[in-house]
């Protein structure tokens, strides 16, 4: 975050574009993220928009523990994001591995995987299995407040 100017951060807070990465979760959190876009929660009214490429995104939403196969794609997607950038770890698995702590094919929780390539990575945790859409929206809002 050191390389970003205050102006960029302010611009990001007005309308954060988010990119969603499911890293081998059970897809429950992923569905709740998609739920945030639909009429009841409709995060687009706050300017939060789900985009299809990490190059367009300001905030990355990460769900699930990172499997061995997903590790490099996740790191690559993170490095493609322009600064200032931040991540939201959504769900128990992304926060602490949850039920999959002992699984042999899991490389680690996403925060550890991100820190491997970017020691300055900024992120927050939204626990829950899965967190309700309200909680996810609140998590993103709190992240923006903390930037």
């Amino acid at each position: 975050m050191t390389s970003s100017t205050p102006l960029l951060v302010r611009a990001l807070k007005k309308s954060p574009w988010v990119f969603h990465v499911g890293t081998s979760g059970c897809n429950n959190c992923d569905i709740e993220i998609a739920d945030c876009l639909t009429p009841r929660f409709d995060v687009e009214r706050f300017g939060i928009k789900l985009v299809g490429s990490p190059r367009h995104a300001d905030v990355m939403l990460i769900t699930g523990p990172v499997s061995q196969a997903c590790r490099e794609p996740l790191q690559q997607a993170w490095l493609e994001m322009p600064r200032p950038r931040a991540a939201v770890m959504i769900g128990a698995c992304a926060c602490s591995m949850g039920a999959y702590k002992d699984a042999y094919s899991v490389a680690g929780p996403p925060d550890k995987v991100l820190l491997e390539v970017d020691p300055d990575a900024k992120y927050i945790y939204v626990p829950g299995c899965p967190p309700k859409p309200e909680t996810i929206v609140m998590g993103v809002v709190k992240l923006l407040g903390a930037l």
Binding site: S24, C26, N28, S67, Q68, C70, D102, A103, S105, C129
Partner: peptide
């Protein structure tokens, strides 16, 4: 291979009472 977590092996390390809770996490929907 992107989503593989090895639940069948995790299931061998859970008691019958814990298993339905773990198996709910195979798939969210």
């Amino acid at each position: 291979d992107y989503i593989h977590k090895g639940i069948e092996i995790l299931a061998q390390q859970r008691t019958y009472d814990m298993l339905p809770i773990l198996l709910e996490r195979i798939c969210g929907i």
